[in-house]
Every structure is written in C-alpha cells, then in structure tokens.
Amino acid sequence: MSLVIAEISYTNILPMFYYINREKLKNAGCEFVPAIPSQLNQNMADGKVHVGGISSFAYGEHSEEYQVLPDLSVSAMKQVGSIFLFSKKPIKELNGASIALTSSSATSVNLLKIILNKFYQLNVSYTTMAPNYDLMMNDHDACLLIGDDAILTSFSKQEAIYQYDLGYLWQLFTGLPMTFALFAIRKEAWEKHEGLLREVHRQFLKSKQACHKNRFNDMITSIRFQLGGTAEFWQTYFAGLNYELTETHLKGLHHFYDLAYELNLLNKKVNKVSIWNPTENFHSV
C-alpha cells in the first residue's frame, strides 16, 4: 500500500513541499495527489489520503482518529494575508447581511462565523458557493475567499470594497495566533509506514527550513511567474505566515475549538491534540 500524500495547490502551504525530494519519496512508496482544502478534508476522512495539510477545523472533527506531525502548521501570528472577508459595508454594519462563503474551506468559514457571532454579535445569513468573487458579490453583501483566490481578488478589488483579514481579527480579539492547517496522519499511516513517515516528516521540515534560509526567494520567483505580484508583496506575505506548532499555537487552537463547540459548529468538544512521535507513537496536548 502506498503512502498517499495530499498536496494543496495554495501558496501558503508551499514551503513544506517546495524543496522535498519527490523522486526519492515516490521511489520509497509515496504518492502525491493534488487537492483543495475541502476535498482533502473529505479524502482524509474517507481514507483515500493518509497524510496532508488539512484544515484545522477538520482535525477538530476527527481529533480522536488522526494524529498531527510535530512542528508543522500553516498559522498566522497576526495577519494571514490570504483569508479575506470582502464587504460592501463596514463589518460592524453587517447585521442582517447575506454573506457568500467559499466552498473551498472549512477552518476559515467557521472562523468567520465565530468572529461575527462571538466578537461582533452579528446575526447574518450564509450561502456556500464556488469561489468566484463577481458571482458571490452579485447577490450578497459580503463574501469570504481564501488562498490564492483571496490574494488575486485583493489585487483587483474596487476601492469601495472593505477587506478584512481573518487572522488579524482573531488575534485582535483573542491575543492568540490562528492555526489554519495541520499536517494530519491517519492510523494506517503511522502503523504501517512509520519509517517512511519519518522521512516524509524530515523532508517537510527540511523544506520549510530551506525556504526560511533563503527568505523564500526561489519560491517567490516561481509564484510570481504563475500569479504575478511584486517580490515585495510576496516577501511581506510569507513574513506574516508562521509554520511552527508551539504551545502558543496549541492554545489558540484549543480556544478556536472551544468557541466552535459553543456555537454548535463542532458536534463534540476537542479535549486534546494528539501529536505523532515516532519513538513513543504519539503524545497529546
């Protein structure tokens, strides 16, 4: 059985994949499959994928079934720079508004619901749609976009449209970082592929470290060729992202899960985050 690794196409997770030795991992038994976050979340739940950077909300839904690779995440200490609420009016005036949610996300849509309900005490209605800014804003007061869709929209949006960074809003009200994705693994992966999983984890860490070492320059050159934007923009963007998984990150995650449970967004309370440890199998925090 191959070790199936899902690979999100968004730039925010690219540092963990950019420098990995794909040929070596494929020869060792790994298979890489592309996915958007919502698809990856479902494929993990269905067992079609064994390892992947899933939405942290999806981990909360399966916290008793998955483990997490240590020292890896997609987080923001403040601004995340690629998860935006675009609105025709100021956020405080959105009571009673209709908001279009991207179908590509799990963490971000639930984070928005927490922010608007718990922090702003707003009552709004939601519609889930494919991530198309023009169609979303045709019949709605605001829309939520994530990843490269959000970045490209921010490049070209009208000046009259308000733009809110969900990572910034979360930190503003909680003082905590927001972790948007975790590298989750299924039970069969840690039971049947421990040695290979060690190598995958090592390469993820090595790739992340190499990106930091050269200040993301090689990766940014590639991204600009595909998506445009200035080198300065992308340098600022990656400087705002964080790829660690410290106790502070976990504190923010637990607060997110507690609020999601209070709003019935999660069916059960998340009591622990189980982190994989190849020498001890795993530990919980």
Rank of each mutant, 00 (worst) to 15 (best):
Met1Asp: 05
Leu3Ile: 07
Val4Tyr: 09
Ile5Lys: 09
Glu7Leu: 09
Ser9Arg: 15
Tyr10Phe: 02
Leu14Lys: 09
Met16Pro: 03
Asn21Ala: 07
Glu23Phe: 11
Lys24Arg: 15
Lys24Glu: 14
Lys26Trp: 11
Ala28Asp: 15
Asn41Pro: 11
Gln42Glu: 04
Ala45Val: 00
Lys48Cys: 05
Gly52Asn: 05
Ile54Arg: 10
Ile54Asn: 06
Ser63Met: 08
Ser63Val: 07
Tyr66Leu: 09
Gln67Cys: 11
Val68Ala: 11
Leu72Tyr: 10
Leu72Gly: 00
Ser75Glu: 09
Ile83Val: 01
Leu85Gly: 02
Ser87Ile: 01
Glu93Asp: 01
Leu94Asn: 14
Ser108Trp: 07
Lys118Gln: 06
Phe119Cys: 08
Ser125Ile: 00
Tyr126His: 12
Thr127Ala: 13
Met137Lys: 05
Asn138Ala: 14
Cys143Thr: 07
Ile151Tyr: 00
Leu152Val: 12
Gln158Lys: 00
Tyr162Val: 04
Gln163Lys: 14
Tyr164Asp: 03
Asp165His: 15
Ala181Met: 14
Glu188Leu: 00
Trp190Ile: 08
Glu194Ile: 13
Gly195Asn: 08
Gln203Phe: 02
Cys211Thr: 12
Ser222Glu: 05
Tyr243Thr: 00
Thr246Asp: 04
Thr248Gly: 06
Lys251Ser: 14
Lys251Leu: 07
Lys251Met: 11
Asn264Pro: 08
Lys269Asp: 15
Val273Thr: 02
Ile275Gln: 14
Asn281Met: 03
